[in-house]
């Protein structure tokens, strides 16, 4: 039998009559601190006006078709300032969003996807274990994009990283070079790269990532990855005459 749904508390410190099922070991004050950080984001007022729970965002949401995920509940929890539920969502729900912003068709002009952007950033900036786990599968993508400046490359098609790509991915990744040879020659039959990015562009990308705090985000999620990327970056930047 499925576990009973957690009882809504619209929590305040000491005010709840029944505890929610999840994250009882995290202090209310910590959850409140993270929520205050979300609210303090300058984008927040433009992403949430009020919600009358019409569900148009869920109807438009591709993730909601496949996961137990509801952008409506994200907007509702934020509107109600349900600190306990928001913390649960910040850990479990926000990573099911593909950030396509189909939910922006909201008649109240809310942006549940925008709220999720902020929730994710707060989760990562505060080193929530769930954010590390959620992003683990993306290590290779992050590495690839941030070192070469190119998109997903064929050799990233690996079943262990992307179980949701289905059972066929195993067969493809096991014989990747052979499969690539079946494609038109314009692809150069490469497996480790999509295309070559020139050094000037790469230098600009590195500088943007450095100065906008993207590197700090990476460090928070995966220290090892951060070191590897930094090595590559520093070399390129040094050659281009930049010192960071």
């Amino acid at each position: 039998m499925a576990a009973a749904a957690p009882v809504t508390t619209f929590a305040t410190a000491g005010g709840a009559t029944l505890s929610p099922d999840h994250y009882v070991d995290v202090a209310y004050e910590e959850k409140l601190r993270l929520w205050d950080e979300v609210k303090a984001d300058p984008r927040f007022p433009d992403y949430l006006y009020g919600c009358y729970e019409c569900g148009i965002c869920v109807a438009a949401c591709p993730s909601a078709k496949f996961y137990n995920f509801s952008p409506r509940k994200i907007a509702q929890a934020a509107a109600r300032e349900d600190v306990e539920l928001i913390f649960e969502q910040m850990n479990d729900d926000v990573w099911n969003c593909s950030q396509c912003f189909s939910c922006n068709r909201c008649p109240r002009q809310n942006s549940p996807g925008g709220l999720i952007t902020i929730l994710r950033e707060v989760a990562v900036n505060n080193g929530l274990a769930s954010s590390k786990a959620a992003l683990e599968g993306y290590t290779r993508i992050v590495y690839k994009i941030m070192t070469t400046g190119t998109q997903v490359s064929p050799d990233m098609l690996q079943a262990d990283a992307f179980p949701d790509w289905g059972p066929g991915v195993m067969e493809v990744s096991d014989n990747l070079e052979l499969w690539r040879k079946a494609l038109p020659p314009e692809t150069l039959h490469t497996t480790s790269m999509s295309w070559q990015v020139d050094d000037k562009t790469l230098t600009e990308l590195y500088l943007i990532w450095h100065y906008t705090g993207v590197m700090d985000l990476i460090a928070e999620v995966d220290e090892g990855l951060h070191m590897i990327i930094l090595d590559v970056m520093e070399e390129t930047l040094e050659e281009a005459g930049f010192e960071i």
Partner: peptide, 11 residues
């Protein structure tokens, strides 16, 4: 709490 799909007890 119908739209959240769960019972509620609120002080």
């Amino acid at each position: 709490d119908t739209t959240m799909g769960r019972p509620m007890e609120v002080p």
